[in-house]
Design a protein around this nucleic acid. Structure first.
Length: 223
DNA sequence: GCCAACGTTGGC
DNA sequence: GCCAACGTTGGC
């Protein structure tokens, strides 16, 4: 099956080569109740909080070809989308998928720039549509096509996210790491941050303490 | 471009 | 079900 990859469907309407069908018609005629997954668990399954959760979602802001398709999707690309909204397709890792399925409407996520010259947290997005089947798993020409997934039992899910705001200042990975290292000794809020303890996971859950601490960094001088 | 970390695959 | 080989992630 396809490798685990993240990144949203940059419905970039660049050039004539209109990628796939894409273009989720949000607000389309029938705001149909999606989610073939009625498995709507109490969100307490993955060690999840009962209350709202916070998230971090990775995306690559620099061009890179995957099976001939550019996977670039920066926060600026998100801002340029209709309604500043995109479907977060292409996740092919079970842990990340389960987090997508645990996301609830209006929960907030950091938009993280990965695999680039300046990795770090660029902005804030929120969930505007809960998990539903990722259509790209059925598209033979999509880099994330999964021949093992069947239409009547889709393996992979996606959510829709909408731009909320840019961070007041970009929060570099190196700065987060410095806090993580310090907090491991001091017991501070970033001591177990998934960005470092599960570094390859493209969709991560944050505690409220982690989320609030990172927001507080916006007000501080770059260190 | 290098390469460590780590998830997945497939032989047995 | 083990585990070595392999492929990917993603920082540097």
């Amino acid at each position: 099956m396809p490798r685990a990859r993240r990144r949203p469907a940059g419905q970039d309407m660049k050039g004539p080569e209109g990628k796939r069908s894409k273009t989720k018609n949000l607000g389309g005629a029938s705001a149909q109740v999606e989610s073939s997954s009625l498995q709507r668990t109490p969100a307490s399954e993955d060690g999840g909080e009962a209350l709202g959760s916070y998230w971090l979602m990775k995306s690559e802001p620099e061009s890179r070809l995957e099976k001939g398709v550019d996977v670039k999707f920066s926060i600026e690309d998100l801002q340029a989308q209709p309604r500043q909204t995109t479907c977060w397709d292409g996740v092919r890792n079970y842990q990340a998928r389960n987090f997508l399925r645990a996301m609830r409407l209006d929960e907030e996520a950091f938009f993280y720039h990965s695999n680039c010259r300046a990795p770090g947290i660029a902005g804030l997005v929120k969930i505007v549509k809960e998990a539903y089947p990722d259509h790209t798993q059925f598209e033979k020409n999509n880099p994330h096509y999964d021949s093992s997934s069947k239409e009547d039992n889709p393996k992979w899910s996606m959510v829709d996210v909408q731009f909320v705001r840019m961070m007041k200042r970009f929060i570099p990975l190196a700065e987060l790491r410095a806090h993580h290292q310090a907090h491991k000794a001091s017991g501070g809020p970033l001591k177990n941050m998934a960005l470092f303890t599960h570094q390859r996971l493209s969709v991560q859950r944050l505690t409220r303490e982690e989320f609030d601490f990172i927001l507080s960094l916006e007000e501080k001088e770059p260190s």
